[in-house]
Structures are given as C-alpha cells and as structure tokens.
C-alpha cells in the first residue's frame, strides 16, 4: 500500500469514529425553554441565562422562570396549579402545559432526550 492509501484508511476510520460519536451517542442537554401561548406566540429563552417571563393567557399572566439551566412555571392564575406543582424541567423534550391558561413550556436542545413524556 502507498502512503495515500494509508491516509485514506486513517481518514475513513476517523470519519467513522467521529460520525459514530456524533450520531449515536451524546444526548445533548436542553439548551432553551420554549414558551408557547394560546394566541400563537412563541418565546425561546436560552437556558444559560437566568430570567423570568410573564406571558398573558385567558385567565391572567403565567410566570415562567429560568434558573441554573432549568425552567419551570413559577406562578399561574389557573385553579388546579398542576403546572406549578410539576416543578423544574431540566431535560430536553420535557413539557408541561397549563391548559386553563393555554401556556406550554417545553425544553428543547440540539438533540432532545425524549420524544414524549408519559404521565
């Protein structure tokens, strides 16, 4: 084998290794919180930046909080507060919805951890 052949062999092996690592492993953590409201507005909040956001709904304002790479519905005007009791979301694909106030909070990343949450 000539030198060129070896170069091809090494490159091919590297490509296989790199693509394996890229496509099959490394579930990336969530990078942003997506907030969707009943009137069709969407707000994307990067998780590395601590913040709070108030979004309006039919019952009043829902307060979304982003802190330490996690997000939650911190306060909601709905009666059952199911969304608030759920607590912090920290993995890609995790979703919590407040149906009465029509607010959906979802964590998303380059690669989502879960396609669906069962409850």
């Amino acid at each position: 084998m000539k030198r060129g052949d070896w170069v091809v062999l090494v490159l091919a092996t590297l490509l296989i290794g790199v693509s394996y690592a890229h496509f099959w492993t490394g579930r990336m953590p969530a990078t942003e919180a997506r907030v969707q409201t009943g009137d069709g507005h969407r707000h994307d909040l990067p998780l590395e930046h601590d913040t709070t956001l108030r979004v309006p709904g039919p019952l009043g304002d829902t307060r979304i909080e982003v802190r330490d790479g996690r997000a939650r519905i911190a306060d909601s005007p709905c009666s059952d507060k199911f969304c608030v009791h759920y607590g912090w979301l920290h993995r890609g694909g995790e979703t919590i919805a407040c149906l009465p106030n029509r607010v959906v909070l979802q964590l998303a990343g380059a690669e989502q951890d879960f396609d669906a949450i069962n409850f």
Binding site: G87, W88, E94, D115
Partner: peptide, 27 residues
C-alpha cells in the same frame, strides 16, 4: 395528554419516552 402510541422509529433510533415520577418532580 401524556398517553401515547408510536409506530416505526424516530429516524435512525427508537422513540424515547420519559415516564413522569409520580412521587415528585421530573422523570
């Protein structure tokens, strides 16, 4: 609303489903 059925696969991998922890928060 948290109950699901899936067919086929998610591209080159299986569908991943997280089950909510009934004892508290998260999965």
């Amino acid at each position: 609303g948290g109950d699901l059925r899936a067919i086929g696969r998610h591209g080159s991998r299986d569908w991943r489903v997280g089950i909510r922890d009934p004892r508290g928060q998260g999965v």
